[in-house]
Design a binder for these strands. Structure first.
Lengths: 329, 329
DNA sequence: CTGAAAGCGCTTACAG
DNA sequence: CTGAAAGCGCTTACAG
């Protein structure tokens, strides 16, 4: 492999000078600069970024920790992150926890050992070990999706999104609104969205009912099963709408309703969250909330890049959202 | 930052010994080993992989070059790759060409400068500069999706998949089968799939017709527009089926048909390729071909890992596929 | 405008 | 079983 020393020898200069040319800093005479560039071209020399990184303590790599790669939300976010960091010549080191909390912590350490310049975590839960690991890492760090204490966080406005969606269903005349949520380990989805639902009902003095409430695990199948339970438990007196906290689970719910010949939206209105491509093309098209995931990814990357340039105070950001009313309601 | 030297000092040994303990090679007395491990724990020491990589010429990182991150195919493949490499403690350095051929070449060089141990390219085109860049890189390299000369390649069986799908439409009694394809820059999708379609028609002595053939650009919208043109040009005498070379474009085509009140499949059968989640939940469910993208990603990663262990001859692999017949036909 | 030297944090023959 | 020394490929004060 050609190294900076080879180039220096071929050009009859010191490697100091070669380095200066390559990095475009310090004075180098035009003549020497040209001579060096020519040799670099000819040899196809590629500088070693490991060596550079060892020396400069900067790697030009951003670590990204995802709960699950093959998810539309994740891929939109990564796409947004990539769009901004690639523009600044950073690359992404990708890491997938497969929803395993231990791996979140493990990967933070791993990314640190790889000398990434910063980390973006698509957070799915909050716990003390996670937070102390982040603090210990002493690295520019952004949490996306959960509000982590002491960490710059970007969160979706889960509470208000959920209130808005429930209000909308109520404004359509629904009084018996079922709910399919997820567990509270994920505070944003599991707690905030549920809270919005209950608060809206309460404000409108509408009844709630345990048999209307089910918990899924984000999968399409779990939406199907949850819907099934709600229908079974309320035969003869079905709720007239169901608010599902993710599009995928909502799609599962719709599938079950279709199988049972329960018409959407005449017999039961369905609403989701996420604005997945799926939501747009199912029949009837699903009413949902767009969280602008790609924009959130961009925002996260921009904040990280800012932090790289100058240490900043930890901040909190709330992403905007948009309710998309479609035929399922 | 704590380094191996700090640990050595604290443990009263040389850094050679610390290195031996950390990497578990060479003889170290149990007593010393324990002493060192204890100090490593206490200090929270994290070895620098840049330094290690500089020294050993191995990084533990696999470069992945994608045409577009936020695509279901890409995310499935990456998920498969990650599953196998993560098991061997490799990470993925992700790179997105945004369908720009120049960037493919640029990123190969970039990944090389980052000392990745190998590269997996989701290839979308074939050209000489690309191939010579790959050869020049002299790195374990896998092409997924296109058969690159001189490079270990995994390809989908585009030709036979396309023949099978067309045969199936014919066996359903269709004699006027329209086709929505893509440009030939992408040989696998643009040439092979088209060839399969034409060969099947020819074998069954069925007519083709220029007004039945359109080219899209992979987007849902382009499927919509292509379908529109086909319908406009054949008013009063529509083909009875349309074979679309990707699910997304097929979804677009279905949308247009629905708008026009052309019933699927009674008035026009629709078939796609890709087995996207979308294809399953759209109404009517789309007949398509499953390419097992995640498996292909796994296979690519396994081949790469094998090459890392021992230089191997370049090989060619053809992925299997499965036709999924659903309500759109 | 240019170069000699030190050093980033590791690993690995080599010697004992 | 353990250590001294060299070296991986860079950058950066420092000196001239």
């Amino acid at each position: 492999m050609t190294t900076i020393n080879d180039i220096a020898k071929l050009a009859n200069v010191s490697r100091t000078t070669v380095s200066r040319v390559l990095n475009n800093n310090g004075y180098v005479s035009d003549e020497v600069r040209k001579r060096i560039m020519k040799i670099v071209e000819e040899t196809g020399y590629i500088p070693s970024l490991s060596a550079k990184s060892l020396r400069t303590k900067k790697s030009g790599v951003i670590g990204v920790i995802l709960p699950k790669i093959s998810t539309e939300t994740a891929s939109r976010v990564v796409s947004g992150i990539n769009e901004v960091v690639a523009g600044e010549n950073f690359q992404i080191l990708l890491t997938d926890t497969e929803l395993n909390k231990e791996k979140e912590i493990e990967y933070i350490r791993l990314l640190q050992s790889r000398h990434v310049d910063g980390i973006i975590l698509l957070a799915t839960n909050i716990n003390d070990r996670l937070i102390s690991t982040i603090e210990g890492a002493a690295l520019p760090f952004i949490s996306l999706g959960q509000d982590l204490p002491g960490v710059t966080s970007i969160v979706y406005d889960d509470y208000h999104a959920s209130v808005d969606m429930t209000n909308m269903l109520i404004s359509q005349g629904h009084e018996k609104i079922a709910f399919i949520g997820v567990g509270e380990e994920d505070p944003s989805v599991g707690i905030e969205r549920k809270k919005g639902y209950f608060d809206s009902l309460e404000k409108h003095q509408l009844p709630t009912n345990d048999s209307w409430i089910q918990l899924g695990d984000f999968s399409i199948e779990s939406g199907y099963e949850s819907m099934k339970k709600i229908v079974k438990r309320n035969e003869g007196n079905l709720p007239t709408a169901v608010f599902v906290v993710t599009d995928r689970m909502a799609i599962g719910a719709m599938e079950y309703l279709r199988e049972q010949g329960i018409r959407i939206p005449q017999d039961m209105a369905v609403a989701g969250i996420g604005a997945s491509t799926l939501s747009q093309y199912v029949t009837p098209a699903l009413t949902t909330i767009d969280y602008f995931n790609k924009e959130a990814g961009k925002k996260a990357a921009e904040l990280l890049l800012q932090q790289l340039k100058q240490k900043k105070e930890k901040e909190k950001f709330i992403q905007t959202y948009r309710l998309i009313k479609r035929d399922s309601v």
